[in-house]
């Protein structure tokens, strides 16, 4: 069991995950941000590695990726920073990014390195099921890394069942079929979608992402799933002065401490 699987075995509701782009706004604050997020109560983290052509991302994460690349962030630099990950951070950590930097780094080398520094899973939005099964699944498994698949309101039931079968930690439910950073519009059809997924009684827990930016959208998501992921809203927070110091307040605004 990796840390992620452990977490889901022990905590079933109101999970909160935060995404941030490594190397943004400064090159060397990756672990400072991760540590602050854990202390503020985040349950697990997604650390994004930047790519020049992020087609699934809206303006906020695009700009953070551009800035991170300008700052000199690469997979080599990130893995160097993550050498100290497990000295400072105990919660599960996922790496999130596009397939091309992984292909260049080498898939085996990437997985080995990720496992070695204590990463628990990977989210690669442009790695489809066919390619994952054929080329990547074995390497992920050998390194005890969970691959996280995305499901949208337009994903068919048959495909969701297939994804459920391939997943071993959680399924990432997109609140809408859109790019990151769009506003969550909880319309009837979205509630129907959440209910439909809940009704399927999947083997894996579900976490809702995209458009979760405040307590209202977080609470709504937690009614239907095991938790929610905040991305663009936190990346916007990182653009402010004193972003490290104010992380507890940011988290508290999303999920008030009980």
């Amino acid at each position: 069991m990796n840390r992620l699987q452990n977490l889901f075995a022990n905590k079933k509701s109101n999970l909160l995950s935060i995404y941030f782009t490594a190397g943004y706004p400064e090159l060397n604050t990756t672990l400072d941000i991760a540590e602050a997020l854990e202390q503020a109560g985040a349950d697990f983290l997604e650390i994004g590695f930047p790519y020049s052509d992020p087609v699934a991302d809206g303006p906020t994460i695009q700009q953070s990726s551009e800035k991170a690349l300008e700052n000199g962030m690469t997979l080599n630099v990130l893995f160097e920073q993550l050498q100290q990950l497990r000295e400072r951070v105990n919660i599960p950590v996922l790496l999130m990014g596009y397939i091309n930097p992984i292909v260049q780094y080498g898939i085996e080398r990437f997985c080995k390195k990720a496992a070695e520094v204590g990463v628990d899973g990977v989210i690669v939005p442009d790695l489809p099921i066919y390619e994952y099964e054929k080329l990547y699944a074995d390497t992920f498994k050998q390194n005890n890394l969970s691959n996280i698949f995305l499901v949208t309101p337009n994903t068919s039931e048959e495909r969701i069942r297939k994804i459920d079968g391939l997943s071993n930690s959680f399924i990432y439910l997109l609140s809408s079929s859109s790019i990151t950073g769009s506003t969550l519009n909880v319309s009837t059809s979205i509630e129907d979608y959440y209910k439909r997924i809940k009704g399927m009684e999947l083997n894996n827990p579900t976490i809702i992402g995209f458009g979760i930016s405040n307590n209202a959208s977080y609470t709504k998501a937690c009614e239907y799933a095991n938790g929610a992921i905040v991305g663009s809203a936190f990346v916007k927070h990182l653009a402010m002065d004193d972003y490290l110091k104010n992380i507890p307040e940011f988290i508290n605004n999303i999920r008030p401490r009980s």
Binding site: L127, P128, E131, F149, I179
Partner: peptide
């Protein structure tokens, strides 16, 4: 070749 697309584009 192939179709390396995010799930949002799959349908």
């Amino acid at each position: 070749g192939g179709a390396y697309i995010p799930e949002m584009l799959y349908p």
